[in-house]
Design a protein around this nucleic acid. Sequence first.
RNA 1: GGGUGCAUAGCUCAGCUGGUUCAGAGCAUCUGUUUUACACACAGAGGGUCCGCGGUUCGAAUCCGUGUGUGCCCACCA
Length: 879
Amino acid sequence: MSSDSRYTPSLIEHKWYSHWQHKDYFSSVPDDREAYAIVIPPPNVTGMLHMGHMLNNTIQDILIRKARMEGKNACWVPGTDHASIATEAKVVRWLREEKGLKKSDLTRPEFLEYAWQWKEKYGGIILEQLKKLGASCDWKRTAFTMDEVRSKAVIKVFVDLYKKDKLYRGLRMVNWDPSAKTVLSNEEVLFSDEQSNLYHVRYRIDGTEDEWITIATTRPETILADTAVAVHPDDERYAHLVGKMAIIPMVNRVVPIIFDTYVEKDFGTGALKVTPAHDVNDYELGLKHGLEVIDIFEEDGTLTPAAQFYVGLDRFEVRKRISKDLDKSGHLLKMEPYQNSVGRSERTNAVVEPRLSLQWYVRMQSLTEPALKAVIEDDIRFFPKQFKNTYRHWMENFRDWCISRQLWWGHQIPAWYLGEEVFVGETVEEALTEAIKSTGNTKLLISDLRQDEDVLDTWFSSWLWPISVFDGFESKEEIDYYYPTAVVVTGWDIIFLWIARMVMAGYEWRGDKPFRDVYFTGMVRDKLRRKMSKQLGNSPDPLKLIEDFGADGVRFGMLASSPAGGDLLFDDKLCEQGRNFCNKMWNALRLLKGLNIVDEEQSPKSALASAWLTQRMDKVLEASIGDFEQYRLSEVLMNFYKFVWDDFCSWYLEMIKPAFGEAIDRKSYEEAVGHFERICSMLHPFMPFITEELWHSMRDRAEGEDCMISIYPKAQSQASELLGPMEQITDIISKIRDARNKNGIGMKLDLELLLEESANTKVLLALDGASEMLVKLANLKQVVVVKEEPAIQYVSFVSGTDKIYLEMPVEIDKDSEEARLSKELEYANGFLKSIQQKLSNEKFVNSAPEAVVDAERRKMADGEARVRLIQESLNKLKA
RNA sequence: GGGUGCAUAGCUCAGCUGGUUCAGAGCAUCUGUUUUACACACAGAGGGUCCGCGGUUCGAAUCCGUGUGUGCCCACCA
């Protein structure tokens, strides 16, 4: 404990973190113990720690620390994801800003060299941040999706899928990111409603002077690529146009007017421009009606010569210009504000362009089947389980997965071309062998083959993570031991991108699930339920939070926010509460450490308090088992919090605390430290730093005797016969405080406690014991048993079925006493009445379970006694 | 349009298999306390139509139906 005796998180955090590291407690190798593995959802190398990471890593750390303390071989593998598109974008910017280089100036190997440099420099930041949070990962195992082992796995899997005929190249409409100049999978496109305009443009009917058809579009720039106009076949307005052609403005292309039920009559003018090259639906229409496809966009979103106008300008610039030009030429009839949903690239935020291109796809059907089954049948359990439905719905409609990306940073596709023919192999030599076999040309050289320029989607490596982190495609030793892993903790936003795919990969290559449980955290939002965003500035800096409240405080705050599933409303007030909790425990230990200890026999009062605390703790621990199993960690923590603060600090410590100037007996002291020790273990997974610090401060510890590897406490006994009496004691003490307050006794005064003869002896004893606690309230003179109502100035109350007389040194306010007693009587009567009513109901007695009826009978007996006792007091007072 | 949740104190949420006078917790609010571990504290208090309606049951915050409000996911969006 530091010398200034103030709780200062920063002082202890660094100390224990390096201590644990030094002990190598985080390392794991297969052994005889039960394996409990968690693979960290690899954060992007580009990433900084954000609140979502804080949350799910706190949760994982709790789970892994608890497993470790329960004697399992706890293995938490950290790592980072190469995040091909996001990283490449970052590297491109870095090159431009720091080195004055453009990507196009560099060769692929040059670019990759810079990218690796960047990765070495910035890629580890996020892991360092996680360490500050206290994450007890096995850092020696730190993996990277592009390191040697993981890369090998990716290549192997690609080849394997190809051989199984689960891979193909296909020409399709894809989501194109013009900023990163790559294709995106559907899951990488985020749709949101944006304000735009609906342009009404008229096309002249071919062969007429002044007959027009008006279409509505949000993308006038694509008019240059139009190859038809479509209307609904039943639309009478356009029935006369059968067989007619329309003339595209500006380019003056003559295109057919087609009739298709796809068109909605009620939307806009009921006429639709068809641009097969730049719209998914139009492409389908084009195929159906045999339309020409005119592609007017370059891969960066500027216009090609095929557009004829605005060549080289960006599509949005063109939108502005063409609307003006169309207006000038009298084609633009109307421009109205319109809200539509716009898809943007998850990584670059660029508006996604539908584009026809040739890409690699994974056939999903055979992969989704076992993956769906596993979750439906609870072989993999979802928490909360509602997500099963979402998962099923999606899995049943899984489209083939586009896995090629037009980037350099990533795993280059192991496919080689000889002319139009493709050969796949783990190495170029393998591909060459295939090529020779296929062509019969034995003179072929490696240099004749041209490797596919594209890299694989990042998720194509992430989905192998639970296997590849254990080198599971190459060696058996670790994978057989650690697989399936225990649980994966993640936000639900990547359920499809990542979770579903890991499940598929697990069954495809291991024939087994990758993890037993999936715990979905909520999305972290601010207390006003807004998303955390840079623009709003409502996203706290995690490291600043740790500085302000300590890692333990922040962990507490994250967890106390809200349970799994829904949104998690973050409020740094909760971190403050967490810090205060640490401070409370810190001071509790200061109290103990400050006591004078004497070698005397244990006082009965602390023996009782100690036994009671054991039982309270048992009860809390017992309840936590189910909560832990269901991943209700907030619940567990709050219950622990209340137990430590209320039961341990407010009641137990107050009861065993000797009066001012006096000493505590050794046994009581030892027991108190023992309780505290168990509390440290119990709370350690949640708040590792403070508990480790207190653990070492409370006793001299042997080398290696750390809280982190102490045994997780279990309930010691089932019995709870002391809980009742203690409840009564706390009740009595509360009532004494109350009487003091009500009668305006602010100062310490002599009070005499008198009990009826019938009083429960255990309570009597306990009260005597608890008397030390009353020191602050009153100097308790004595506890005596009375047979009759005493002839003194007193306040009486009923606790349980005992009546207690409290001698008061001041005149009692009879009116308020009467009011108080009347109120109590009313309550007791109401209680009794409701029970009597129940018991007089034959149907209740007959149909309710025996135990319930019995309990009611007991309650009735107690209730009757209470009513009688209160009534007596009231009568006396009135007399 | 398809699916799926949610509705309980000022706020955030528990309330699990229907059964304690069951209406709770934390925070916030208010009142009191310079108390000897802790003011990052202590002792108290107030605060509710458990969304409305109907049903099942001896008994409903809990189960069923229905209405309303509200969130999310998927698809579509000229």
